[in-house]
Design a binder for these strands. Structure first.
Lengths: 189, 189
DNA sequence: TATGATTAGTCATATTCTTGAGTATGGGAA
DNA sequence: TTCCCATACTCAAGAATATGACTAATCATA
């Protein structure tokens, strides 16, 4: 019951096609959730059948036709119910952590390489999020925007994404440093 | 192919029963992965069938008998292969973010309550991780431990957990503050 | 002396997420 | 002009994860 509400929340900012949603939910931004196109199309079909979103056909000349979806009143009510219900905390679930956990028993060089690469990816995401935040607040001061902005939800989730990626980057860099120092020490000995 | 390697990594520190693993993987610590008991028992059965872990029966008098598992050489080789393969980055996937994303369109008070509660939970986890870190480095200085400790993997993943929970706590508190200020401003108006 | 918690598991089902393959059209670059 | 990329979407199958209901014994506590 999770992707369902993520889709509803994403559609609050306007009409989107499955394809457009897919791009937002796929690698790149993925502000507050992540999903593959196939899931999204399936989810949209289900949501429409349940009356939580409404789709309308848009005929295009140069491109294939598309269907744009928007949240219905029932969809909004469903989101309201969802928001009122308690949800249990999320956990970290990352292959890289498993590798680091095992690092004393396996080839540390392989783990080190992946930490370096992941730090790079996280740093790239940090930049993307920072640009997105600037765009979302439309030149305004952050405190001012958060106090009086009309639509702050996406900004707030973006802040979480930024914090997460910064943490990931810093941790990867720090652990990589530790592993490098140990490798050098072992080499000298 | 994810939980499999998490279980192998967890068993590197000694023999554990499914029950003991379940406690470590369930709420509480969940250093680097999270899973329910049923999953773990199933996974252990599969790993044993594949020869990646070995189980031995321990007969107990006051408690039900248990089976303790340890990683075999083949299991270690499998972990090695896993560590060498690249794995794509992890995403945040959290119901609370979905609620925050929708906060401008739904009852902000409900979201605020959940942010407060989540901040409390994250703060509790921060304390647990801090205590665990102190225990893991056995009184030694952190830099000293990371440079020369024999088993640093669990410490490093614990650091990630700590950073994640701190970020979660800080973000929840900050966003809660923003929502409270907006609610007050709306009330005055 | 019931009651519930803890230890130690199993079984079945349901949902969710991922993987892989396809359909069809138009636009731009080599 | 061939090939790849972007738009726009569908179908099928599998792996991973979550939910809920069980068994069975001991231990602590009210």
């Amino acid at each position: 019951m999770a992707l369902k509400h993520a889709v509803l929340a994403a559609l609050l900012d306007g009409e989107y096609s499955g394809y457009q949603l897919a791009k937002a939910f796929d690698i790149g931004v993925a502000n507050f959730w992540h999903a593959l196109p196939q899931q999204l199309y399936a989810e949209l079909t289900g949501l429409e059948a349940a009356g939580l979103v409404a789709g309308r056909q848009v005929v295009q000349e140069t491109r294939p036709n598309k269907r744009l979806f928007s949240v219905t009143d029932e969809g909004l009510a469903e989101l309201e119910r969802f928001a009122a219900a308690t949800s249990r905390p999320s956990f970290i679930r990352d292959d890289l952590l498993v590798k680091v956990q095992a690092v004393d028993h396996i080839d540390a060089a392989a783990v080190l390489a992946q930490l370096t690469e992941r730090a790079r990816m996280a740093a790239a995401k940090v930049e993307i999020f920072e640009q997105l935040l600037t765009r979302l607040r439309g030149g305004a001061d952050e405190a001012e925007f958060l106090a009086h902005g009309a639509r702050i939800g996406p900004y707030l989730t973006c802040l979480r994404g930024l914090g997460f990626e910064r943490e990931t980057r810093d941790w990867c860099e720090r652990i990589a440093g530790v592993l490098r120092a140990r490798a050098e020490a072992a080499h000298r000995a």
